[in-house]
């Protein structure tokens, strides 16, 4: 074999190996991208189906009312406690920080704006994601595993209408109400600490809070809450509906529901803040 043909063979195999490595690299990048696109497509289709079924008859009013109770009423203690202690901590932290600049007078403004614009909707969303999102995913996931979803279909009932639409309607409508109550309780927490621990004048705290508050502060928080309610119930339903088999599948669905809805809440909080206040 001549020297030139040997080097040609080496070059040929070198190029082939390079090509194989490059294709392997492309495959390792492409596979997760394709998986992500597939999951996004499925979620978008599921969300569209769910929203459409919220508006199309038949309507299951009894289920909607039951979900109002499960999602709204039973979340009130956890949301109320979160808002109360957040308001109290906020007043305390603001006081210790603001005394360095002789700006203690701004505590009422900081408490009321932080609670209504950000803390109440975000914390309520996250708490409801933990309580309600997990519960929805576990319930629907168990129904999937025990063939109850198939049973609904064989009884001529659309699971999207009977199970998912009532939860999405209740989540989207009840979270703003919870946040409104959370706003009041959170400001009340700040008031308690400011007046009873830090010696602020109650009248001036309330009047300052009222003066600084604009309707958009409350409205933006309520709109955020409605979006977060939609996200929490949608992710709970989606993960439960597409749950894998067995206890492990339901466990994984519950985890995905809480994690994905928490992340989406934080992302959409930024987007909505940008829309409202930039």
């Amino acid at each position: 074999m001549s020297e030139s043909s040997a080097s040609g063979i080496i070059q040929h195999f070198g190029t082939k190996r390079l090509l194989v490595n490059f294709m392997n690299f492309l495959a390792s990048v492409g596979a997760p991208v394709l998986r992500f696109m597939n999951a996004t497509g499925k979620l978008t289709y599921f969300a569209a189906q769910s929203v459409i079924n919220c508006f199309l008859p038949p309507y299951y009013f009894r289920s909607v009312i039951r979900q109002f109770g499960d999602i709204g009423y039973y979340s009130l203690p956890v949301v109320g406690m979160t808002a109360l202690f957040t308001g109290m901590v906020l007043a305390l932290q603001s006081y210790t920080g603001f005394t360095r600049f002789n700006a203690e007078g701004a505590i009422a403004s900081v408490v009321v704006l932080s609670i209504t614009r950000e803390l109440s909707p975000v914390l309520a969303g996250l708490m409801v994601a933990g309580r309600v999102g997990a519960s929805i995913a576990a319930e629907i996931g168990t129904m999937r595993v025990t063939e109850q979803l198939d049973a609904l279909t064989t009884l001529s009932v659309n699971p999207h209408k009977y199970l998912i639409a009532p939860r999405i309607i209740a989540g989207t409508l009840m979270l703003p109400l919870l946040v409104l109550l959370g706003d009041i309780i959170g400001v009340f927490g700040g008031y308690l600490v400011s007046v009873h621990m830090l010696g602020f004048n109650p009248h001036s705290f309330l009047s300052q809070s009222w003066d600084v508050l604009e309707s958009m502060d409350v409205i933006s928080g309520l709109v955020k809450a409605a979006v977060f309610g939609f996200i929490v119930t949608l992710m709970g339903c989606y993960n439960g509906y597409s749950s894998g088999r067995g206890a492990q599948g339901v466990g994984a669905a519950t985890t995905y529901a809480v994690v994905s809805s928490s992340i989406l809440i934080l992302i959409f909080n930024y987007i909505l803040t940008q829309v409202f206040f930039s």
Partner: peptide, 26 residues
């Protein structure tokens, strides 16, 4: 009509509502 292997009864509903489910909702 379908009889599932594990029953697939709706555990949040009483027995009569399970039986009547297809009549009420379907």
């Amino acid at each position: 009509g379908m009889l599932f292997q594990g029953g697939a009864l709706f555990d949040s509903l009483p027995v009569w509502e399970n039986v009547a489910f297809g009549l009420i909702h379907g």
